[in-house]
Design a protein around this nucleic acid. Structure first.
Lengths: 220, 220
DNA sequence: TACAGAAATATTGTTGAACAATATTGACAT
DNA sequence: ATGTCAATATTGTTCAACAATATTTCTGTA
């Protein structure tokens, strides 16, 4: 698990480290990332750091302003709406054409069971992690490496938005049962119903997210 | 039209130039791209060039091998199957939820009409270009900047595959009428039928592509 | 001749310093 | 307080260097 990807180029490893900082909320949205400071911090040259910045900018996690530097991307209503549009397209699409015997369904089932156990124990971080596993497994149903990669990118962007939430522990919790219903529909070979249920789920989650952003902007 | 994006960073401009070379087939699949040769050719530093290479690698147009350099990506059956899986997900999904009054439908209609005219005149390049406009407009139906960007990336990868075809002029030609049928269904507010038709279209195109790749590998 | 191994060469991976161009800051005058 | 202009810091890009890894060339031996 401590795979620091030694074979990969330095820029890729750097990008991964910085991405971790971003989605863990250690770098706040809007914050400027000085080249000098970060190349010092990670003990790499400015050139290598700039390559990493460029990768993360392409992923939408950083924003680049000419001659002014890179900043942590600031979630907006527009970006949240767009991200959920992508999720509806990918997740509902993957579910609709899901084949009952697909191995990813077992992964989904396990994630739901784990989330339920962890919710009982009050392990909200565990619930969130299981929830993420669940949705990634849904994309796996489509058997496409490109869709998986794209979903991962958008997913990271969404986690950046999570940083705005004051009580993230309760964000995923209400959705555990909906996940259970969705995987149950798949197990009964009702993919269209599963997709419809997921659309409801995502619309609800989108509203929750937008409401949270609204509160966060009011505070500021 | 001659917007060379002077405001953008050098690496981005470079990436665009190289991308043009890639999709126009001037750089052959599998070919190695020497850092020294290309930094000389474009009159930029190796560092800037490496940034551009990294961007294109992330787009799937180049492949990076540690300590060996970057190579033009080589299309495989697996990549073609994957790309068409993405297209079915995105294009059929966009069509299925299309709203009859969406402005992109007019763009689709115009593209079809133009393609028909150009086909009569034997302008195969024009037909191909109009076809591309048509499919991009389909993605526009989903009103998502992220889906648009993703489609553009996958679309570039597909154009890399087109380079393998010996007679690309006849690839798009048979599909002009199918495009016409699809946009007609949208105009009649039958999005589900349009999506179904598109699925047929894409399955056919996928088989054509795979057959072409097979022939190309036989030759080699 | 064929071939294994070693030396020589070329290429990539990464760094550090340099300098121009642009942005930000601060001092000063009104 | 406000606007102007010099001083400073930051980014954009290049260049030269060197270690690490690949590739090629050379060489001696079976």
């Amino acid at each position: 698990m401590t795979d620091d990807g030694d074979g990969l180029p330095l820029a890729d490893r750097l990008a991964r480290r910085i991405r971790t900082l971003l989605i863990s909320g250690e770098l706040a949205p809007g914050q400027r990332l000085s080249e000098a400071a970060f190349s010092e911090r990670f003990d790499v040259s400015r050139n290598s750091l700039r390559e990493a910045f460029r990768l993360l900018t392409k992923d939408g996690l950083l924003r680049h302003e000419a001659n002014r530097g890179v900043f942590v991307a600031v979630p907006t209503m527009a970006s949240i709406i767009d991200i959920y549009r992508v999720r509806r397209m990918l997740e509902c699409g993957a579910l609709r054409q899901a084949w009952q015997q697909h191995p990813a369904i077992k992964v989904m089932r396990d994630a739901v069971n784990r989330a339920q156990r962890q919710r009982e124990q009050g392990d909200w971080i565990g619930v969130g992690s299981a929830n993420m596993t669940f949705h990634t497994a849904i994309i796996d149903l489509s058997d496409s490496v490109r869709l998986n990669e794209f979903y991962e990118r958008v997913s990271a962007e969404l986690r950046l938005c999570f940083g705005l939430l004051n009580d993230p522990e309760h964000l995923h919790s209400p959705f555990v049962d909906m996940n259970g219903a969705i995987v149950a529909l798949l197990e009964q070979d009702k993919p269209h119903e599963a997709a419809a249920q997921m659309e409801t789920y995502l619309n609800l989650a989108e509203r929750t997210m937008l409401k949270a952003l609204e509160r966060a902007s009011d505070q500021a």
